[in-house]
């Protein structure tokens, strides 16, 4: 069972990334690929600060802010220089690779010899690392979910949600869509960096390639979560679904590794899980409403159609 618990613990950390991707991909309707650079940025900033003996909590907060800056850059590239969303994200991601190397000073930083949040707390509370990671991960996820629930219920948050749905309407209602996009992307990448800051401490090292494939993990978590929680209307529970999605994803990875399957097979198993999740939601709702994942797709189609008609 231990390997499942470890999978859940890791899943709760990756859930922060999934929530970040959800902000850009679903709420802002912005396919932001800076994700892969931001999670590594969070890990590199946190780990270099830890090796300088900084307080782990402070190091995590600074990593979050660094992620916000990265998101702001993507936002500025898109809104001020009118670079398309995907390209803006790729540019930031590419630039971040060099920046991360500069921050870390090498491609790898070991955190075995410095106190991290996990080592400090396990010795202070006298519990084992897996238990601690489960409690800590749950608390952090709930905290972030509550913060997001509050933020998107405010005037500013409502403006950001509306920006992702209908920009023309937003401008007609006096919303500066450049600003709302930048704030949304900053927050999204901040959360992704937060995920990286926890991850490097959990695994005891930071690596320049930590972020490779992370966008797929984020998207898979969202799709799994939405498929399972397809009938949920409450925003807090929707966010909870994303967290569950991320945890399920890590459980699958844990199972693959436990049964001595090659790590090469992790990706094909991911694809299988996402397909199964989509099938389940489809058949469960066969006579009911469409799942939110499908609904989103048909909304997208609708939007594309409108765009075509406008041209």
């Amino acid at each position: 069972m231990d390997f499942v618990l470890k999978g859940i613990a890791q899943g709760l950390i990756w859930a922060l990334l999934a929530l970040g991707v959800y902000l850009s991909y679903r709420i802002l309707d912005f396919a932001d690929l800076s994700c892969e650079g931001s999670i590594t940025l969070g890990a590199s900033v946190a780990s270099i600060l830890l090796t300088k003996n900084m307080n782990p909590v402070l190091a995590i907060l600074i990593a979050f802010l660094a992620g916000c800056v990265a998101g702001t850059v993507t936002g500025l590239l898109h809104t001020k220089l009118k670079i398309p969303p995907i390209l803006s994200g790729i540019l930031t991601m590419t630039a971040l690779f060099s920046i991360n190397l500069h921050i870390m000073g090498s491609a790898n930083i070991q955190l075995n010899s410095v106190p991290t949040l996990y080592t400090t707390l396990t010795s202070a509370l006298d519990i084992n690392k897996t238990t601690l990671s489960l409690i800590l991960g749950t608390c952090v996820c709930l905290l972030v979910m509550a913060a997001l629930y509050w933020f998107f219920g405010t005037e500013l948050g409502a403006g950001i949600r509306a920006t992702g749905i209908n920009e023309k309407m937003c401008r007609a209602q006096g919303i500066n869509t450049d600003t709302t996009k930048i704030i949304g992307l900053a927050l999204s990448n901040g959360l992704i960096a937060l995920s990286g800051a926890f991850l490097c401490q959990y695994q005891g090292y930071a690596n320049i390639n930590l972020g490779v494939g992370s966008i797929v993990i984020g998207l898979a978590s969202i799709i799994i979560g939405e498929a399972i929680f397809s009938k949920v209307k409450n925003f807090f529970l929707t966010l909870g679904g994303i967290v569950v999605g991320a945890v399920l994803y890590r459980i699958v990875v844990a199972v693959v590794l436990y049964f001595d399957m090659s790590t090469d097979d992790v990706k094909i198993m991911t694809a299988a899980v996402v397909i199964v999740a989509l099938c389940i939601s489809r058949y469960a709702n066969k006579f009911g409403k469409k799942s939110s994942a499908e609904k989103q797709t048909s909304d997208d189609e609708q939007k594309r159609k409108e765009k075509r008609e406008n041209v």
């Binding site: 405010t154 005037e155 209602q173």
Partner: peptide
Amino acid sequence: IAARRGRTRTLKW
């Protein structure tokens, strides 16, 4: 959202 046209959007509910 429309009721707040022309005002700065704050962190109020």
